[in-house]
């Protein structure tokens, strides 16, 4: 009981720390790929600190509430996704709860951004929801094939199943959904080339247009958490999770760095291009994967 509560408190903190580290790493790697020196790794922390000292402007109660909902949802999901052997809330609904709790992040931001009454924010939200629909089609096929292959909706059981035999990415037929997941991973994380939602040059950073001060700091933390969540979900589902935290950290780090290195060279896609990409090859591969899995079962 004490251990569970301790995990419940520590895991979100750990998630935020790792997420912020990822943000810093992201900027550093991008800089190095541009042949720049780049900011220090703790630059996101400095930014967030500065933003907290800036206060900011609020557009009303829903503006605050949406952000709180978004961040609270992000922090809650961490407890449902195993971090190595720690998964304090494994018996509370499994994958389906994760799927639905993941809605809270975009929905909270959408409520808050909508209340800001700025057309840039509305366009950004519209793009975000369309993009989410775009990657959700292959993602659901992938998750369903994994869940039907292991005949469980519990993510802990899926990890256990892989640790008993071989990582799902390297096993037949789960390699197919694994490949599809790799193809859509940048869209799930919302990084290049799928950052149309918060494109600063086109729509003044979209839903974030009216965020300043601590509100923007919260948004940075949510972004950091979403990076962490997306990658740990992938590692748990296809790279066999991990038996101890250090291995797990190394795994998510490797996936993240690979993802950033590949995607840093792509320019930003338009929303239609993004969706038609997501609905073409990743969906076809994921669909094939689900068909094969249902035949094998």
């Amino acid at each position: 009981m004490v251990a569970t509560v301790a995990q419940c408190v520590l895991l979100p903190v750990l998630g935020i720390v790792i997420g912020l580290f990822f943000l810093g790493l992201y900027r550093k790697i991008m800089a190095r790929l541009h042949w720049r020196y780049g900011p220090p790794l703790i630059q996101p922390v400095i930014d967030i600190l500065r933003l907290f000292f800036q206060g900011g402007m609020s557009h009303g109660a829903v503006f605050d509430f949406g952000l709180v909902l978004s961040l609270a949802g992000a922090m809650a999901i961490i407890l449902f996704i195993p971090f190595a052997q720690w998964c304090p809330l494994q018996g509370s609904g499994g994958m389906l709860v994760i799927l639905y709790l993941m809605l809270l992040m975009p929905l909270g931001t959408a409520l808050s951004g909508g209340e800001a009454a700025n057309p840039n924010a509305s366009i950004g939200i519209s793009r975000k929801l369309i993009l989410a629909l775009g990657y959700e089609v292959p993602l659901l096929l992938i998750l369903l094939s994994v869940m039907s292959y292991y005949s469980t909706i519990s993510i802990v059981d899926i990890v256990r199943g892989q640790q008993a035999s071989v990582w799902a990415l390297f096993s037949w037929p789960l390699a197919l959904p694994g490949i599809a997941y790799i193809l859509i991973l940048p869209a799930v994380l919302g990084v290049r080339p799928f950052d149309t939602t918060t494109a600063p040059q086109e729509i003044s950073s979209g839903p974030l247009v009216e965020y300043g001060g601590k509100y923007l700091a919260f948004e940075h933390i949510i972004h950091a958490l979403s990076l962490f969540l997306g990658i740990s979900l992938f590692v748990n589902l296809f790279l066999g999770g991990a038996a101890n935290p250090i291995v797990f950290f190394v795994k998510i780090l490797v996936v993240f760095v690979a993802c950033v290195c590949i995607n840093a060279v792509f320019p930003r896609l338009r929303i239609e291009q993004a969706v038609s990409y997501l609905w073409k090859w990743p969906t076809a591969i994921a669909f094939l994967g689900l068909v094969v899995v249902s035949l094998v079962k």
């Binding site: 900027r27 800089a31 720049r36 020196y37 780049g38 900011p39 220090p40 630059q43 400095i46 930014d47 900011g56 402007m57 600063p200 040059q201 003044s204 950073s205 974030l208 247009v209 009216e210 965020y211 300043g212 923007l216």
Partner: peptide, 14 residues
């Protein structure tokens, strides 16, 4: 300029 933490932002709020 980013090595000194200076980056451009899109809106005055940020």
């Amino acid at each position: 300029a980013e090595r000194f933490g200076i980056i451009p932002v899109a809106t005055p709020r940020q």
